[in-house]
Design a protein around this nucleic acid. Structure first.
Length: 507
DNA sequence: TGACAACTTTACTTCGTCGA
DNA sequence: TCGACGAAGTAAAGTTGTCA
């Protein structure tokens, strides 16, 4: 995207805001009914340092990293290089053979130095993450660079609430997306301009007056045209003619990839149009096997180059319509149109949604009616303003985010994501069911009450996860891996499921 | 706990384009 | 001219937070 640097900088600062860290500390202390003491984190660090030293003394752990082997290997290689001893070193030029040996030795020494540097880094990494186990390697590296490689200084700085956000900002700025290069050649540009002119002059013969007016007053802005507009130097013109939905989706690239990819390809990726090639079909079915048609077509399309989410959605409907695949969630009404079943409950007839050009006459039609006659359905009024929120599951239980029992589908109950439901869940007494007693929350540094695991294997208190994922600066993004993550993907650990997840936990 | 508003998501409709 | 298909826009369902 072509924007000025300030805008990009603002966009890439996604991780914890200063406010968030401060809040986390506040909440943590509020919970334990303690007064906020400014040097509390330092006291905590001191305790941890003493504990760590004691633990090391009792149970010395030697972490083996591939580097140790590599250094040994390099040392052996160095020893095996033949040596040349000259009696009068400066008398003559070295022979070719001697030059090669020197070159090899220098190279190996450089490598060895690099390996030692790595080893030293890992030593510091272990020391720092021993205290701040929620930091990742990249964050430690950035912090060390910031403190002239002084790990003690890093440890000290990290006791300041605003230091981690500062480091994360530095990292985030490293990933400023480069400008999307113009991938059009001169010939392509000429052809494109020709096409654009043709489009501009194109006047379709329309019989309806209304349609004619619409055709003259606005023309649909195609994706390639819209993206080309972004190359304009004038920021006002960049989004000219874009629909609200498109702008919204475009802004969601980090916050919500599904929304973005539903309407866009990956930045710089050329859009593919036309019929699906056999390779694309193969990719589509492979993806279908992996994630299924769960409605997140944006996410679905991410692995299919050149195709956006709605293209995948349309293609899926096409496959259904042409009976190449079968999905019981869709029905075909008498008029031959596909309808997705909403609010389908076990043993009950689901409803289908029908669009109406007249917004004041919204209707929900019954499946039976739809199957019998598509036109008769319009006579039935549905004045319900708000449907039952939780239509996916009949159960009244509040096991939010828990995998369905005996369900091999891999889906999760989506009900009960509100504060209220969570409160009810907590009230139900499940909170006491902590399978990880003594586990420290990396955010609050307090013992985790309700541990939850992400698909990436990181464990934090459920409340900490929720606060991270709700933080507008890094909404729906894992604070540790920076990868997309929603609350629904979290699994609260209990005695029932801990064995299933124990091996997946990353420490 | 219900009502409601704001926001998000996505199924579906409509329209543009192209080739026969 | 027409049918088929791709793509954009929008209506409406779902979600979540707030307030009384």
């Amino acid at each position: 995207m072509v924007t000025n640097n300030t805008k990009e900088e603002a966009e890439v600062i996604k991780f914890y805001s200063e406010n968030y860290t401060a809040k986390a500390y506040r909440i943590s202390f509020k919970k334990s009914n303690k007064k906020i003491i400014r040097d509390k984190p330092i006291n905590k660090i001191k305790e941890l340092l003493i504990e760590q030293a004691r633990e090391r003394k009792l149970h010395p752990i030697v972490k083996k990293r591939p580097e140790s082997d590599r250094i040994r290997q390099l040392r052996e290689e160095l020893a095996n290089i033949s040596t040349v001893r000259k009696e009068r070193v400066f008398d003559s030029e070295p022979t070719e053979e001697e030059k090669l040996i020197i070159q090899k030795r220098v190279m190996l020494q450089q490598l060895q130095f690099q390996e030692y540097e790595k080893k030293d880094f890992y030593r510091k990494l272990d020391k720092i993450t021993g205290l701040y186990n929620f930091l990742n390697e990249e964050e430690v590296k950035a912090a060390l660079e910031d403190c002239n490689n002084d790990e003690e200084q890093v440890i000290l700085n990290l006791t300041q609430q605003d230091y981690l956000p500062k480091i994360r900002r530095i990292i985030a700025l490293k990933y400023v997306r480069p400008e999307v290069e113009t991938y059009m050649s001169t010939e392509q540009k000429e052809a494109y301009e020709k096409l654009a002119t043709k489009r501009k002059n194109y006047v379709k013969k329309i019989t309806s007056e209304d349609a004619k007016t619409r055709c003259y007053t606005y023309s649909r802005l195609r994706l390639d045209d819209a993206l080309n507009q972004l190359k304009s130097d004038d920021p006002l013109k960049a989004f000219e003619g874009w629909s609200e939905a498109r702008i919204k989706a475009y802004k969601m690239i980090d916050a919500n990839p599904n929304t973005y990819y539903y309407r866009f390809n990956a930045p710089g990726e050329k859009q593919r149009n036309g019929a699906w090639t056999p390779e694309e079909r193969k990719l589509f079915f492979k993806r279908l096997d992996e994630v299924g048609a769960d409605g997140q077509w944006g996410i679905f399309s991410m692995t299919i180059p050149g195709r956006v989410g709605y293209q995948c959605s349309n293609f899926y409907r096409h496959l259904l319509k042409s009976k190449q695949i079968v999905d019981p969630n869709y029905i075909i009404s008498n008029d031959g149109k596909m309808h997705y079943l909403f609010g389908k409950k076990d043993g009950q007839v689901g409803t289908i949604r029908r669009h109406n050009r007249h917004p004041h006459k919204h209707k929900m039609i019954n499946l039976e009616e739809a199957l019998n006659s598509s036109s008769s359905s319009t006579s039935r009024h549905n004045t319900r303003k708000r449907k039952n929120k939780y239509t996916y599951d009949d159960s009244d239980s509040d096991d939010y985010l828990y995998p369905k029992d005996n369900d091999n589908s891999g889906t999760y109950r989506s009900a009960g994501t509100t504060k209220r439901t969570r409160a009810r869940y907590e009230k139900s007494g499940n909170v006491d069911e902590n399978p990880l007693p003594g586990f420290t929350d990396p955010i609050t540094l307090e013992e985790v009450v309700k541990p939850a695991i992400s698909p990436y294997g990181h464990v934090m208190g459920y409340d900490s996860w929720v606060r991270c994922l709700n933080n507008p600066d890094c909404k729906n993004k894992c604070p540790i891996t920076k990868k997309p993550l929603t609350k629904r993907e979290l699994v609260i650990l209990t005695f029932e499921n801990i064995d299933q997840y124990r091996d997946k936990i990353i420490q």
